[in-house]
């Protein structure tokens, strides 16, 4: 298999919260040691409840959040210590699409200026004519009209704004895009438009995506492989169909059975595993396996030591239930 375009090695991102005079600071372990690989041309879906650290992982990859520990390798190079010209090159290669198309575009810049800005910073086109030509191409690629170039973001609907955001990410011909919940702020009929656009771009330009979302049905649709996160830990990683049809980790099982199915007969007949309780605080995560407080199959061992992500059959699972059937 080809070399991975992105590799996370034991990535940890901690935040300090609270604290003050004579008061100790608390540490939020947003991402607590995850390792994964993403290959060229692949879409990797990252799912989990809010607060599980999926967005923090994405933000660490584009260097918005500085990792506390661990390595992030892009094309084999550790970007946590990258500097100078290499940093600039990295920023061309890795881009991000944000969740909220209303907040991520500057209302005082025209669409043309927004898409042109990264080109100006990185100086990849010499003349203004070249830049403008490229902007028009990009607008067409994302399904907008080239003469929208002089308009302002407020003149567009949510779905169209998300397209502008996508055009901006594509301006530097990136190799890897972090999509942080790109569709959750959009209406159902518009979501499918954006998903199809992302798939089309991938087919044409061979970009890899890290697709972060909580909408499992859309993640399953777009992803080749899926990673499930819980409280800063990856609990299961596998091929998207396999993982969906035969989830192994108890959390994955519960998460999948909570997804509302748009089919009344299936929805009424299937058995749901409804998890009790809520996500524990990442300030004081449970000892051992972080899921044990809500796990229907928790054993004594689960509170004593933390399960490692191990290969079980065709995928990686972090759970003691599968200790017996290792290969």
């Amino acid at each position: 298999m080809a070399n991975p375009i992105l590799e996370l090695e034991n990535l940890k991102v901690y935040f300090n919260v609270g604290g003050g005079f004579l008061k100790k600071k608390d540490v939020v372990k947003a991402v607590d040691g995850i390792s994964l690989k993403i290959y060229p041309g692949e879409t990797f879906g990252l799912v989990g409840e809010s607060g599980c650290g999926k967005s923090t992982t994405g933000r660490a990859i584009v260097k918005i959040n500085q990792p506390t520990e661990g390595k992030i390798l892009v094309n084999g190079e550790d970007i946590t210590i990258i500097k100078g010209a290499n940093l600039k090159k990295f920023k061309q290669d890795v881009q991000m699409i944000f969740q909220d198309p209303y907040a991520s575009l500057n209302p005082r810049m025209t669409v043309g200026e927004i898409i042109k800005e990264p080109m100006d910073i990185h100086g990849i086109y010499k003349t203004n004519e070249e830049k403008e030509k490229r902007v028009r191409e990009l607008l067409e690629l994302v399904g907008l009209k080239p003469d929208h170039i002089r308009r302002y973001p407020h003149e567009f609907s949510g779905g169209q704004r998300q397209r502008i955001g996508i055009a901006r990410t594509l301006a530097l011909n990136p190799k890897f895009i972090v999509c942080d919940e790109p569709i959750s702020a959009l209406d159902v009929s518009i979501q499918a438009q954006v998903i199809n656009l992302l798939e089309k771009i991938q087919a044409e330009m061979g970009i890899s995506y890290l697709f972060i979302a909580h909408d499992l049905s859309m993640v399953k649709h777009i992803s080749d492989r899926i990673g499930v996160m819980y409280l800063g830990n990856l609990v299961e990683v596998g091929d998207s169909d396999e993982l969906y049809n035969n989830p192994l980790h108890p959390y994955t099982k519960a998460l999948l059975s909570s997804v509302p199915i748009p089919d009344p007969r299936v929805a009424k007949s299937r058995e749901r595993i409804v998890l009790q309780g809520e996500l524990p605080s990442p300030i004081n995560p449970p000892s051992g396996c972080v899921f044990r407080t809500r796990c229907p199959k928790a054993m004594e061992k689960c509170s004593q030591c933390k399960p490692e992500l191990k290969k079980v059959k065709d995928r990686m699972v972090a759970c003691f239930l599968y200790d017996g059937d290792k290969e």
Binding site: S157, G159, Q160, D187, V188, S189, I190, Q191, A192, Q193, I195, N196, L216, S217, M218, K220, H221, D241, Y244, N245, L256, V259, I261, P262, D263, V266
Partner: peptide, 25 residues
Amino acid sequence: KGLLSCISNPEEKEKKELHPIPGSP
């Protein structure tokens, strides 16, 4: 019909193509 064809049903074994409704409301 459009709404039903632009959502993805994870229960379906085969990956179907999404058919978005063109335009906006």
